[in-house]
């Protein structure tokens, strides 16, 4: 079957033999965007987190047929014309990644959280950000999430005064 969706602002159509197969592979091998990672394939680690219509979704457990007509954002589309998303900027500022493999999933989850909770408390972070990082970058991530919230607020304020 063919499935069409908008990904990072571009309309794409992928061909799959099973509509229930994971959207993850349609993104990685169909569209060719490798930033969304395969970690477990069981919706446990969060490395494949993307946004579907603005909500965080683990693409390894999201049937590709359900993506029909949806707006999808991946890590490649989080930045805007080369300008990093506040979450990415904060990740740079705090030098978060080590191996880096899990980081796109964390950044996508964080961006989704900040949309709904602009100023998360430490408890909000603990409850919402439950992806897995093996290098143990959680300590810097927490700092980066708070910083991203600040950058985001600043950005929104300056946009609303323009």
């Amino acid at each position: 079957m063919k499935v069409s969706f908008n990904i990072n602002g571009e309309q794409k159509t992928v061909e799959v033999s099973d509509g229930n197969s994971p959207l993850l592979w349609a993104i990685r091998d169909g569209v060719g965007l490798k930033g969304t990672k395969f970690g477990c394939g069981k919706a446990a680690c969060g490395a494949c987190t993307i946004h579907v219509d603005g909500n965080a979704v683990r693409s390894c457990s999201f049937p590709v047929r359900m993506a029909e007509g949806k707006e999808i954002t991946t890590i490649e589309g989080l930045s805007n014309d080369g300008v990093l998303h506040p979450v990415q900027q904060a990740w740079m500022d705090e030098v978060v990644p080590q191996c880096g493999y899990c980081q796109p999933g964390f950044m996508m989850a964080t961006a989704a959280m900040l949309d709904k909770i602009p100023n998360p408390t430490d408890e909000d972070i603990d409850n919402n950000i439950i992806n897995v990082c093996r290098c143990g970058t959680y300590y810097r991530m927490r700092k980066a999430i708070h910083r991203a919230a600040e950058l985001n607020t600043k950005k929104n304020n300056s946009e609303s005064t323009q």
Binding site: L33, K34, G35, T36, K37, F38, T74, I75, E76, S79, L84, Q88, W91, M92, V95, P97, G100, Y101, Q103, P104, M107
Partner: peptide
């Protein structure tokens, strides 16, 4: 100094064996 592989790891470049 900041890691030299910071940006590729933040924008999701295809740098891993898996990619």
């Amino acid at each position: 100094i900041k890691r030299i592989d910071l940006r590729p790891k933040i924008v999701g470049d295809p740098i891993f064996g898996m990619d």
